[in-house]
């Protein structure tokens, strides 16, 4: 099968460390239209390695769009121009001969660049530590069918739980806000009966930590939803807002427990 090849000009962000000054590096590549975007970078790296040069650092793992490891800003859009996919699912057939492609890391104060295109997203884990769970120990739980959950409620929880934690929402937001990510987890538990006991403490704790980590505020531009590879809805943000306000206004507890 004859492969269709396309020639592209890459402008790749190179940065040696979190404090180093970065800059774009130019590369001309010729790549099969059937290749994925990351396979194109693999090829670029292979040629760099052969020439004894440092390959471009970028992260990826499952290459099926589910692990959330990969994430590049391609011509200004997190995960590239095609909606509802992760970078690893982007194929070169969506680019045209001779096109210039700018490749940048996810940029946010809360996501410092480690090297080149790899960023540190551990802030997301830190938010999850604050309350991204239902507090049950292993064992001693009721039978799985003991609580009936309406199909649409389960589906709504699933829609929120489908978040892959890639950080594209932060990268897309002009304020580098993490509201979509946080609200997805808050919502998953807010709609399920299992999440009710901690519903109003969870939202307060997670928002508090989110704020401390240097993410911006949400100004409802909905860029996050547009760029989310899983199409997580901003309805989740609305739900989180409501729960948070309700928690602050109605609950009697003044101090949050650690």
């Amino acid at each position: 099968m004859a492969e269709k090849m396309i020639n592209l000009k890459l402008k790749v962000w190179r940065q040696n460390g979190p404090k180093a000054v970065g800059a774009f590096e130019d590369h001309d590549v010729s790549v099969s239209a059937d290749s994925s975007f990351l396979e194109m970078l693999d090829e670029l790296n292979d040629s760099l390695e052969r020439n004894g040069k440092d390959p471009v650092v970028f992260e990826s793992d499952c290459r099926e769009g589910i692990c959330g490891t990969c994430g590049l800003v391609i011509n200004g859009q997190p995960h590239g121009p095609i909606p509802k996919i992760a970078t690893c699912q982007l194929h070169m057939r969506h680019f045209t001969e001779g096109q210039t492609i700018w490749i940048e890391p996810f940029r946010a104060k809360a996501f410092p660049v480690l090297k080149d295109l790899a960023v540190d997203r551990s802030a997301f884990d830190t938010i999850m530590h604050a309350g991204g769970y239902v507090s049950v120990n292993t064992g001693g739980v009721p039978d799985a069918n003991a609580i009936a959950i309406p199909k649409d409620v389960a589906a709504e929880a699933f829609d929120a739980a489908a978040c892959i934690g890639c950080g594209a929402c932060v990268a897309a937001c002009k304020n580098a806000s993490a509201m979509l990510f946080v609200s997805a987890k808050v919502s998953q538990f807010a709609v399920l009966p299992q999440g009710q006991p901690e519903r109003y403490t969870r939202v307060q704790k997670m928002v508090k930590v989110m704020d401390e980590l240097g993410f911006g505020s949400c100004t409802n531009t909905y860029a996050c939803e547009a760029e989310c590879p899983k199409g997580i809805s901003v309805k989740n943000i609305a739900r989180m807002n409501k729960d948070y306000i309700k928690a602050k206004v109605k609950t009697e507890k003044i101090e949050l427990e650690a």
């Binding site: 200004g76 304020n175 993410f215 505020s217 860029a223």
Partner: peptide
Amino acid sequence: LYFENRGARPEKYAVNGSRKNSTLFSR
């Protein structure tokens, strides 16, 4: 909010793709 939000992204993108994901009004 404006200044805090600006501070949340100290290094700006070279290519701004926001036209493709949000409305002018909102931005």
